[in-house]
Amino acid sequence: MTALDLSPDALAKVTAEIAATAAEYDRTGDLPWAGIEVAHRAGLLTATVGTRYGGPGAGPRDTARILTAIGEGDASVGLLAANSLNTHAAQAAFGTWPVAAYEDLLRRSQEGPALVNAIRAEPELGAPARGGLPKTTAVRNGDGWLLNGRKAYATGGTGLAYHVVWAVEPETQRVGHLIVPGDLPGITWIPTWDHLGLRASNTHDVVYQDVQLPADAFCEIPRQSDGSYRDPAAAAGPGSFGHPALYVGVARAARSAFAAYARERVPAALGKPIAQTERIQSVAGEIDLQIVQAETLLHGALLRLEAGDTSILPELSAIKVAIGRSVIAAAQTAVAALGNPGLSRHQPLERHLRDALCIRVHPPQEDAVLLAAGRRVLGV
């Protein structure tokens, strides 16, 4: 594994290199391979590989710093990186992957970027965190499994080395994930992604038709003590802050873009950069306040978890929502203050706002979080 350098200077260099191609990938919608390669060369895509596998074993706070830096460069690269880092972190903690499959993923990661993602949502069901069981099935077939079904919002598209596919075994109603190499026969991608933000993330639909897998490919998700199934993403947990971290990076990018424009813009009637006016200085302060708030919530929560403070666990979902609100507020404030230039595709701010808005789609979502928090407060 590449030696990790997580110094501020090293992360800033990664941010700048990834940012150099972000606008072009946003326009084309192609997978942002240039940015992915930058993250790979810096060893960031495998930062959470466990020490028992020869990896750096980066913890949640270092992971958050990595994803903030990548997200500041390009939110789509940040999302692809977050999904891969989350997978490696889960394997380090729980070791559920088949030995041969994980060894293969690590081998591919040595040779180049090897992206991996949990493929869970479905066109009819929607997000699993909302409840329900998948239609995607894993059926016994001799010594292995046959995988069939259609998934939606499968970030990474054809760039994925491995899929972690949420499915049900019809006969027993066992629910679990199947570890699926991305190059197997029977996998077909449907180009459905045409989104407001994260345009280069290639979050397309994918169809699995009689994909043959070995017997150890199925990793069961345990049910609750009462026998019911509750999706793990229904509430935020200690490992849930990778996605918020990358969007903090998006807010930081919006702050930088606002400041650069304000220093360069000299209206004829003013005769000096608008950065020298109290109005723009106050707006910059408001943007900074929102980012400071988001970063403090993010790292404060992770520090409390690191210290073993379990009292914060019921609050994690609300903290994710609060970070999201601050991220969006920072980007919206920057765009609103500049008027037309803030909405122009000749400036990066509109892209940062589009990307920032995507923080809302990651589970658990705000309405569900507020309902659960309200019931907890009221004791009902």
Rank of each mutant, 00 (worst) to 15 (best):
I312F: 01
A253W: 08
A337C: 05
V207K: 08
K272C: 08
T2I: 12
P185Q: 01
A64M: 04
Q293A: 11
A39I: 02
H163K: 04
T333L: 05
R52I: 11
R376P: 02
A334T: 01
G131D: 01
Q281R: 14
S240R: 07
T296I: 08
K135P: 03
T155G: 05
P98C: 09
A34V: 07
A268H: 12
I319N: 02
P364V: 10
G43I: 00
L289C: 06
A307E: 15
T46L: 12
R255W: 10
P181M: 01
P134R: 12
A92Y: 03
G159R: 02
L297M: 07
R252L: 01
E264G: 14
T2F: 10
L353T: 04
E111A: 15
I187H: 03
L198Q: 09
D143I: 00
T137H: 05
D194E: 13
D62M: 14
S344P: 01
L125M: 08
P348E: 04
R265D: 11
L298K: 07
S344V: 06
V283G: 02
L297Q: 14
N340G: 07
L316V: 03
E295N: 12
L31W: 08
D226L: 14
T137R: 13
A294S: 08
E124R: 14
G159A: 13
L297A: 03
A58S: 15
G126Q: 09
N83I: 09
G182Y: 13
A331Q: 12
P363L: 15
D143H: 04
I119H: 09
L370T: 07
G156A: 08
D194L: 09
A368S: 13
R354C: 05
V380N: 09
T136M: 10
V283L: 04
L147H: 06
D62Q: 15
A90G: 06
T96M: 12
A275L: 15
H204L: 11
P32M: 11
I328S: 02
L313A: 14
E350A: 08
T137E: 13
H195L: 06
P185N: 03
T63H: 08
W189L: 02
P222V: 15
V49K: 03
L147E: 10
V206N: 05
S84F: 00
T21V: 12
H88Q: 09
G374Q: 01
T28P: 07
P238T: 03
R325M: 12
L196S: 08
N86V: 12
A138P: 09
A42K: 06
Q276S: 14
T63W: 14
S228T: 15
A251F: 02
A42V: 03
A236S: 14
D183C: 05
I328P: 07
I179D: 02
I190S: 05
D26G: 07
V335N: 05
Q110E: 12
S76V: 07
I319V: 11
I312T: 05
S228Q: 10
L198H: 08
E366K: 11
A39F: 04
E111N: 10
A64S: 14
L115M: 04
P267N: 02
I291H: 08
P238I: 08
D62L: 15
R325C: 12
